Simulated scan of single mutants.
Amino acid sequence: MFLYVSGGVLAIIIITAATGGGWLGDAAEAGKLTMIVLEGNPLSNNASFVASLLGGMVFAMASHGSDQLVVQRLLACRTKAEAQKAIIVSGVVVFVQFAIFLLVGLALWGYYEHASPESLGLTRDDEIFPLFIIEGLPPGISGLLLAGIIAAAMSTLSSSLSALSSSTVTDVYARFRKAPVTDQEGLKVGRWATIGWGLAFIAPAAVFQSDEGNIVVLALGVAGITYGGLLGAFVFGILNRRARAADANIAFLAAVGVNAFFFVMEKYVTGEVWVAWQWYPLLGVLVTFAVGGTLSLRHPARPKLPAAPGQQHNDQERTPGR
């Protein structure tokens, strides 16, 4: 992280020195420094402030509150307070990181004199920064920055594989195995699960590869397909006292199916955006509650769980006459 973030800052400094800082003025004149966009339909415009604020809020709740990729890191904290601090600091760091690389994008736009990726012999927008790393940075620095980018990608990929492997062993294998799972057996199954999920990553990576546009937006849109059902299933299980696991699973699949329908139709069929990617998680939550809530009507409400013994004792101490 230090290497590639420092490389982003260094790229801004080098481009500013080479262009005299003119790229910032050009970006301002072209309206590329606009932070809040209120024009357009907030339902379908993925640059809309409303979609980014409200939809992005639900997206963050899903990614940082229910995704095992982040939850497994929070579980490594010693206390709940430390986990809360980690989430808050993470938000600040991510904000600064995004701001740096958004500025890098503007600087590159000015450095290459507003040229399109096609005119530079590139096929995608995200190839411009590697091109500058190779052509515009000193040899030693460019090598370190490329290593930092690859390391960041590897750490994200390994975290995903670790989360999926852990869930496979704990929530699937151990659940259906009658005898307790030993550490050695869990390690062995986890390794095979890691290989299996690694191979499974290849298929969607081939399907969702994009020859044009913003790869970050594409990745977030793909993640949003499942995030809504994931967050919805968690909240549904907490709030609905009639909920059963089967209801949540069916509702999750329905939410994923609805979001996947919009994604495929917009990207590969009509070419028109019907629902901005920021709304996918919220849409998934609503579908999960609608489908799961309907299915849960078949069951009686679960009794309210009694308070913990310590909590009961404290309540009794605070109650006069006891």
Rank of each mutant, 00 (worst) to 15 (best):
D126A: 10
F289E: 04
D247L: 05
I100E: 07
A276R: 05
E185S: 12
L220H: 01
L157F: 07
P138V: 09
V291A: 05
L102M: 05
E212D: 08
V104M: 05
G198M: 08
E266Q: 15
A51C: 01
S52F: 03
G7Y: 04
A179P: 00
G65M: 02
V264H: 13
V37N: 00
I13S: 11
A115C: 07
M154Y: 01
L24Q: 08
I238K: 14
I250V: 13
F289D: 01
L286D: 03
D67R: 08
A193Q: 03
V235Y: 01
A30P: 00
Y280V: 02
F262K: 12
L286F: 13
S90M: 15
Y112E: 12
G7F: 08
Q209T: 04
A243S: 04
Q312E: 10
M35W: 13
V216K: 09
F49E: 00
L218C: 10
V5Q: 09
G105Q: 14
F49C: 00
G105W: 08
E185P: 15
G224F: 00
S44Q: 09
T194D: 02
G292I: 06
K85H: 02
I215T: 15
R322A: 14
A11M: 14
A243Y: 03
A243D: 00
L108V: 10
F95M: 15
L187E: 13
E135F: 02
F261H: 14
G284K: 06
Y227L: 15
A205S: 12
G190C: 07
I13M: 09
I238F: 14
G196P: 07
A301D: 01
H64W: 12
K85S: 06
S165V: 13
P303H: 04
E317V: 14
M57V: 04
V217T: 12
F101A: 13
P138W: 01
Q68V: 01
A151V: 07
Q184K: 10
A243P: 05
A243F: 04
E39D: 01
D26N: 10
D211Y: 06
D125P: 05
A255I: 06
G321N: 07
G136C: 14
G65I: 03
G136I: 15
S296F: 02
A254C: 10
S52T: 10
G196W: 09
T168V: 04
F236Q: 06
T170G: 00
D126H: 06
